[in-house]
């Protein structure tokens, strides 16, 4: 009887042990990679030779870092533009994005693109690249593959427009979304009676956390200066700024959970199979992770915040008001897959 109980416990322990969980995660990640590569190849299959040439770049080309939050033609993106594609080609691109991102991540991307379209409409439209006006909107988005989509060799899926820059680098069953830039303008809009706030959860969760801190904690978290913009925006690759704010390990368990829920808003944009191991890895750096805040703490105000750890850099930066937000997600050890592509 004792032996049977011991055997049962042993089996349970083996099942829940880290190597087993890791094997399971690796299998899920490998499956996700296969699905994303298949969806990427399906996009390529819809393209003629000229568009195939435009979408594909060598992995080590400068294209990898050529992305921005600026509208066209202030910033000229390369790749294939949604506006230049047929409906079946556009459908294939959006299918790829829906496979590459989590359900929530894909919805966030759609909402941001829709926000660009609302902004375009509010601005009175635009004349496109041939005209004088800046060009943005839900069809002013570009797709590029840096490296050929593959289940074994590294490649990056770049998808970006005015307020969204997705850079998903994959190397076999490993993937990173760093660096990526989800932004929003307007930050709140209505479509068919539905209020849309593409980055609303990020904002709301951060205000809940800053207001959950006691006075002493808040004094440590708040940077006493105005942060006018992203510190490590699109062009600021390869830099690590000294962390500031309150050390997450000094927070209560409940407050720490709030921090991880904020972080998940960015990490969770990627496919679940990649997001979960990434969250585990970020949480393992609890002692060296910081939360910093600049601005008023009354909900509805424009306030900047940052979550920073050894492998994490998140910034949320209102552009002077609550209706125009820029954010950045980076991994100083693995931006553009610098670590996973080497393996």
């Amino acid at each position: 009887m004792v032996r049977l109980a011991a055997l049962t416990l042993g089996i349970l322990a083996a099942l829940t042990s880290t190597p087993f969980a890791q094997r399971s995660q690796t299998t899920a990640a490998a499956d996700a990679t296969r699905q994303i590569v298949a969806a990427a190849q399906a996009v390529v299959a819809t393209l003629d030779e000229s568009k195939k040439a435009r979408v594909q770049f060598p992995f080590d080309s400068p294209q990898k870092t050529r992305w921005s939050n600026l509208p066209s033609p202030m910033y000229a993106r390369d790749g294939i533009r949604l506006a230049d594609l047929t409906q079946p080609q556009r459908d294939a691109v959006m299918k790829l994005m829906s496979v590459a991102l989590s359900r929530e991540g894909y919805q966030k991307a759609l909402d941001i693109m829709k926000g660009d379209e609302v902004l375009r409409t509010q601005s009175g439209g635009n004349a496109g690249r041939g005209g004088r006006g800046p060009s943005f909107g839900e069809l002013e988005y570009y797709l590029a593959f840096v490296g050929a989509p593959s289940t074994t060799t590294p490649w990056t899926l770049m998808f970006g427009g005015h307020h969204l820059g997705i850079n998903l680098t994959m190397a076999g069953p490993q993937a990173t979304l760093a660096p990526s830039l989800p932004a929003a303008q307007p930050a709140t809009f209505t479509i068919e009676g539905r209020t849309v706030r593409p980055l609303g959860d990020e904002n709301d969760k951060a205000f809940v956390l800053i207001n959950a801190l006691d006075d002493k904690q808040r004094a440590q978290a708040i940077i006493g200066s105005k942060v006018a913009d992203l510190v490590l925006g699109p062009t600021q690759n390869g830099r690590t700024i000294a962390p500031e704010g309150i050390r997450v390990s000094t927070l209560s368990a409940q407050q720490q959970m709030m921090v991880w829920e904020i972080v998940r808003e960015w990490v969770g944009i990627s496919h679940d199979a990649f997001a979960e191991p990434r969250m585990t890895e970020i949480r393992s750096h609890l002692n060296d992770t910081y939360f910093a805040w600049s601005g008023p703490i009354t909900k509805g105000s424009a306030a900047y915040f940052r979550v920073q750890g050894p492998t994490l850099h998140i910034e949320y930066a209102p552009q002077g008001n609550v209706d125009h937000i820029h954010t950045i997600y980076r991994d100083p050890t693995n931006d553009y897959g610098s670590a996973i592509a080497k393996k």
């Binding site: 601005s123 004088r132 303008q185």
Partner: peptide, 10 residues
């Protein structure tokens, strides 16, 4: 460009 981009104040 500036006039038409006023809503997209970068």
């Amino acid at each position: 460009l500036l006039c038409s981009v006023n809503l997209s104040a970068h």
